[in-house]
Design a protein around this nucleic acid. Sequence first.
DNA 1: GAATCTATTGACAGAACTGTCAACAGGATG
DNA 2: CATCCTGTTGACAGTTCTGTCAATAGATTC
Lengths: 213, 213
Amino acid sequence: MARKTHKSPEEAREAILDAAEAIIVDVGPAGLRISAVAKKAGMAHPNIIHHFGSRDGLVNAVADRIGHRATARITTAINEALTAAPEDRVKAITQVLDTSYQGDEGRAAVWMHMSGAKSSLKSNMQQIVELAHRFRKSLRNDANQENTNRLVMLVTLALVGEVVSGQGVKDALGFGDSEESRAHFRQWLAELLINLSDEQLATSLNTSPEIKL
Amino acid sequence: MARKTHKSPEEAREAILDAAEAIIVDVGPAGLRISAVAKKAGMAHPNIIHHFGSRDGLVNAVADRIGHRATARITTAINEALTAAPEDRVKAITQVLDTSYQGDEGRAAVWMHMSGAKSSLKSNMQQIVELAHRFRKSLRNDANQENTNRLVMLVTLALVGEVVSGQGVKDALGFGDSEESRAHFRQWLAELLINLSDEQLATSLNTSPEIKL
DNA sequence: GAATCTATTGACAGAACTGTCAACAGGATG
DNA sequence: CATCCTGTTGACAGTTCTGTCAATAGATTC
């Protein structure tokens, strides 16, 4: 087979998206330069405009691809978790947390979010909260829905925060920054999410009960 | 007093920093244009270079000012919290959470962090973790330091996450996005931080005890 | 009031970036 | 092999942005 110099449109688009996504991870959408993408993808820059119309078109395409990819991963992880055996709860929740925006993809997603891109966050969140509440109800039948919501919010925001400044915070607190350490933290989170009882979560905003330790 | 047309260097610098910070909150450091800052500050753009040397000099100055301002606020809040009466614990911790990067300043700080600016996070974190551990020890003398660290990490990351996507997550979960709602969430966090016992936090990574509900 | 200092600005230079266009070239179809 | 389609590119135009420079104009000092 001779060396192909003309790729199919799909191949070309994927190559360009890969290069663009890698750059966005580093410098964000505002820092993306078509010439830099072209150089990284090994082609001349007009070719990029040919495939995506404009710089903005490229950025939107990257955002869409990241969103769809993450949503697909999260959905499958949740479906697996929903069919997991009760004793595999912690592992299942940990898996969902691990699966949500991972590594560089998380950084890209945060960049997009900060830059005002619409995201597929909402549908993912609603799936996750439903999963979490099923788990909590399986532990205690009258589990409080609002507490589930708050816990999911807490965990979600913490995962986002980890993407932004996880390394810095861990340095400051003396935790390592290895992937093992990050996984350890997520597992700790998953356990917290499952193990907390509604008593600990009682909203004492009106009444302030003395909670025993 | 005649209309002043020449400001003192300090006044000019502050006016420029105000304009630049407002722009960075919206579009991030990479999106900051000297001409836009000049327009917002009501002056010609060379004047900005005169005062800050270059575009990068301006961005660094904004980052420094935000860092110093936040560190000062957090430090005073912590000092007040450390002298609070025991029954004011929740209020004191809530106050510290409220005081950490607030509103637009938080967005600016996240932008800076994503863009690779060095931050004053570390010293702030260490102060906060010390404060938190004092509280936890006052509740139970043998409070576990590592659990304190993990809790502080969790709360810190959640606050960062709230800056990035708090509104989106709250929308998805059906919480309002008013300042009242945000304050409510922070208070809930403060209570969680204080009320959690080490039993709930037992690291079951090695042994997986069945924790009663 | 003269001299000095510096905050301020209009005009300009140079670079970088996006997008256009005509031409080229690989691959598919008849 | 001829033709068509389209992926690909070099050259170019227009815009925008950063930074320079010389000149202007408040403010301060003597």
